[in-house]
């Protein structure tokens, strides 16, 4: 168990969630379930997101990261289906560097960027760097959940407010 990563979720047996990735398909696609890791400093959002995902069919586990500088290490350990990465992390932590590290170390985990204030160039930069999704915190909550599901299915998603 990594000190940087706390797990909570509906399954207590970790063995049930370990699914080998086959021919490019994510673990979640193969198993019909999905796991989510959240890299964000907003505890209100993290707690609410976990509660919201718990009522989603197929949701298996939620991981939260305490030490952002070791986020890629935590993802490599847990191999979540989707990593939600807040672009505005505190303490001078470079979220784009974390994205690069996640893409390099855990390509089977698909990264979705979250941000309160999206900018056009940032979307392009993040997606070019390997993110599968880019979601503004200004959209309705169901669009955030839909985005997670679509990314799990292998579709790329950009959800900005109209």
């Amino acid at each position: 168990m990594l000190a940087t990563c706390r797990r909570s979720g509906t399954f207590s047996d970790e063995g049930q969630r370990t699914v080998k990735t086959v021919s490019g398909a994510s673990a979640a696609e193969t198993a019909g379930s999905f796991t989510v890791m959240c890299i964000d400093d907003n505890e209100l959002l993290i707690d609410a997101l976990e509660r919201r995902l718990e009522i989603e069919t197929g949701f298996a586990a939620f991981y939260r990261v305490d030490d952002f500088r070791r986020a890629a290490e935590a993802a490599q350990e847990r191999k979540p289906s989707v990593v939600l990465l807040d672009i505005d992390l505190p303490g001078g932590v470079d979220a784009m560097a974390i994205l690069d590290e996640l893409v390099a170390r855990t390509p089977e985990s698909r990264v979705v960027i979250l941000t309160a204030f999206p900018g056009g160039a940032l979307v392009s930069r993040a997606m070019s760097a390997g993110a599968w999704g880019f979601v503004s915190k200004g959209v309705a909550s169901d669009r955030l959940i839909d985005a997670i599901r679509l990314v799990v299915r292998g579709e790329a998603v950009i959800e900005l407010e109209d």
């Binding site: 209100l44 609410a48 919201r52």
Partner: peptide, 15 residues
């Protein structure tokens, strides 16, 4: 900051 507060509330309302 408003957005960081509103999204959690919307998620809780979904639940």
């Amino acid at each position: 900051d408003l957005r960081n507060i509103v999204m959690p509330v919307l998620l809780r309302l979904d639940v």
